[in-house]
Design a protein around this nucleic acid. Structure first.
Lengths: 211, 211
DNA sequence: AAGCAAAGTGACCGAACGGTAACTTTATTC
DNA sequence: GAATAAAGTTACCGTTCGGTCACTTTGCTT
């Protein structure tokens, strides 16, 4: 219907496979059944198409982040205890395991997420803007989220004491490592999913407070 | 001196920055002060230069792996106990911390390692061969090494019980995550180094057996 | 139905691409 | 010092690239 959106869709598909330099304007126009000249009725240049994809992904990403924050405990609440903690779905150890697996399964099966992730991965050294965006999205944001989560869990006595930032890295890094492997070798998807599950489960066995 | 090696050196530099498609034959020849036609006296095609870089890096990589194995405890030794474990440099908890930091500092400061890592990172989706090579090198091999190490440490009672593969991922994944961040944003190098150090230290605080 | 703007077309531009050909320089060997 | 093979040069090949142009088609408005 909307040609402009179809162009962005096809361009993302191509860029995520072959990168910016490996994709020509004809590569984008061809599958859409239009001539490459038509692309210039909607965008000024190839670079502008790329930038627009990045821009839109940034917006979609922020939306997702906001939705995550909604389900997040109020960090100003100092009186949180074990009982309070269980109120929030996923802030209990078991709930968190499920949340992570849901997040992973969505990230890996959603075509748009996959393509953006691939595109950013192979473009991450192209400019400092892209470098920073990659780090912000796939490291800082996730780590920050988990860090605040563990802060709460420690405060509430659910898990053992420890530096929450270090715990966050120890929890999150294996997940994204296996997701990268999953992206590169879809044949090993089951192996990766199993490894993530094992990791998350053992992480809580190791860190949870027993009484 | 040896032009062929200079070509490979310059090509790796360019490929690691701009990727295969983003690098032209003139880009490689220019900085060497020769014409692009001269490149064809040494290589048949641009692809062949790329392939040769990969091939050489594979050889160098195998050499490094062998050297690592030399310092590695014999896994057939079933009678290993806490005392034996300390014989091997780096197989004690404190030694392992130092070993990891040495490995990280070398990987991040060595220009060749850095360039190969960057090149493989931005080329990892170009072919299944490159996908598998990336996973093998930066996931499977490292995980396998750490897994065997933790197996020994558990057997010897140095660290607490647990699935050694999961422990290996929990130990290694944060390291490579921060190395990726370090690669993308060298400004944050100190922050990354600190994070890796904190992680490794806390990891052993959490897993080591106290008596 | 006329008018009109948006969206499409094919033909074309200059530049850059990977790669080749014919020729020259360089260095070594006998 | 002539012969020779390797390594370099310039000029050029055909192709593709990103992008433009003049023109046509489409679809909506009044």
């Amino acid at each position: 219907m909307n040609t402009k959106e179809l162009i962005l869709e096809e361009a993302l598909k191509q860029f995520s496979q072959k990168g910016f330099d490996g994709t020509s304007m004809s590569d984008i126009a061809g599958p859409l059944g239009i001539s490459k000249a038509a692309l210039y009725k909607h965008f000024e240049s190839k670079q502008q198409i790329f930038d627009k994809i990045i821009e839109e992904s940034e917006e979609r990403y922020k939306d997702v982040l906001e939705k995550l924050s909604v389900h997040y405990p109020d960090s100003s609440n100092e009186k949180m205890n074990k009982k309070d903690v269980d109120i929030y779905s996923g802030i209990s150890a078991k709930g968190l395991c499920e949340n992570v697996l849901t997040f992973v399964r969505f990230s890996m099966s959603d075509e748009y997420s996959r393509q953006v992730r691939h595109m950013l991965t192979i473009s991450q050294f192209q400019s400092s803007k892209l470098s920073e965006m990659y780090t912000k999205r796939y490291v800082d944001a996730m780590l920050g989220y988990d860090e605040r989560l563990f802060e709460q869990l420690i405060k509430a006595g659910v898990i053992k004491n420890g530096n929450p930032k270090v715990l966050a890295a120890m929890f999150y890094a294996p997940v994204i490592m296996y997701m990268g492997m999953w992206d590169r070798e879809p044949k090993r998807a089951e192996e990766c999913e199993k490894a993530i599950k094992d990791h998350v489960e053992q992480f809580f066995l190791m860190t949870i407070n027993r009484e």
